[in-house]
Design a protein around this nucleic acid. Structure first.
Length: 108
RNA sequence: GCGGAUGGCUGGAUGGCCGCUUGGGGGCAACCCCGGGAGGAAAGUCCGGACUCCACAAAGCACGGUGCCGGGUAACGCCCGGCGGGGGCAACCCCAGGGAAAGCGCCACAGAGAACAGGUGGCCCGGCACGUCCGGGUCAAAGUGAAACGGUGGGGUAAGAGCCCACCGCGCGAGCGGCAACGCAAGCGGCACGGCAAGCCCCACCGGGAGCAAUGCCAAAUAGGGACCCCGCGCGGUGGUGAUCCUUUCGGGGAUAUCAGCCGCAGGUUUGCUUGAACCGGAGGGUCCGGGUUGGCAGCUGGAGGGCAUCUGGCAACAGAUGCUCCAGAUGAAUGGUCAUCCAUCUGUCAGCAAUGACAGAGGACAGAAUCCGGCUUACAGGCCAUCCGCGCAA
């Protein structure tokens, strides 16, 4: 789990890919940093009020849990960014498809 | 049945699969088992408290708040009951509701005139320079305005006028009722005293400041910086507290060392000297500022506790007693993700006179705890209950 603001900023300035439901930002960490896969979630106030932000974040968490164990790579940071209305309302299957597409795209 | 008024409740349900967090238990460990896990507003952060730290003799001033009366409460700007005023046929609702003879200020526009006097017009009397005149008395009609010299009728008069009278209004009000706000009111007064205090103000009462990012403990790491003060430091004097010793006529006197205070003198360098000025000495202590880190644990959920039931006191708010129950503790922040069925809701099509039924689709009010309570305010799809009022119908 990512917790430091600096990690988020570094990830956002690295590789990124946008789909209707998800913005994905990712970064391959340097060899001197900690190992393992890390993931973080961002839902700014643009997404909506507290209820809308929490719901978007929880769906992003569910998507990450479903996709990253099969497609994610060791030594990478992934940041999932929620979008207004769409992240909370898109059918779950499409959200999963978006995530898979985004992860593959970001690795190449 | 229709239309209202008031108070309260609810805020989708069930199941499958995959997860999160917390308490307890087990296990060397991976992990496993059992239990708990958002709201009525968790919201706005507007009041009041608990709690923590800082400050503090008291009082006064200043500043801020509150503002009919009584009660409730830990407290409140909250709640309950009452009073007064206003609205409604009514149930009921609304009120920033102390003081305007303490003082200052304001009262726009309109209007002759806005607070105390003045005079647009009318009426009457007098004057002669007979006029669109002057002086005096007087009305409060028209018109303006949120507000205009009490109203109506009669008497009276030069014309008039509370000048006088009746009724109404207004003011004062003995007395009576009420804990009080206030109410009732004999009688008196010919009427004087306009409004605004959410303009200043006066009066009464209340109020230290900051907040859980409070505060305490532990660990790590950077810097080792700046400013001010003390000390470094001795000698002399002064006067004082206590200690020890000696002495005493018991009041006291003397000696010794020590300690805090005050006063004076006292170091070095620079310029030939003096005065003077400037500068310097460094191991330590204190205060403040700056820089860095912003981790872990405690605070942290048991509290004026909540909920349910019964009883007692009270019109009520509420208080008391007994029994049962325990009800979130996250920290990039858990309390969920997804699928299916049902439940209401809406839309479309079809069938039917209609109630309604079938199929398809949409979509589930406001909204997410962050130290904890009591309130207020604001948001809220739909549904349900109770009491009351008006109208209609029936008996």
């Amino acid at each position: 789990m990512l917790t430091k603001r600096a990690d988020f900023i570094r990830a956002s300035s690295a590789r990124r890919f946008a789909t209707p439901g998800i913005h994905l930002q990712a970064r391959k960490r340097g060899a001197d940093e900690v190992s393992g896969m890390r993931v973080g979630f961002t839902c700014s106030k643009k997404v909506g009020n507290a209820v809308a932000r929490n719901r978007a974040k929880r769906r992003l968490r569910a998507v990450a849990r479903a996709v990253l164990p099969e497609l994610g790579r060791d030594g990478w940071d992934y940041v999932l960014v929620g979008r207004k209305d769409i992240t909370a309302s898109l059918p779950f299957d499409q959200l999963l498809a978006d995530m898979r597409r985004a992860v593959r795209k970001v690795h190449t």
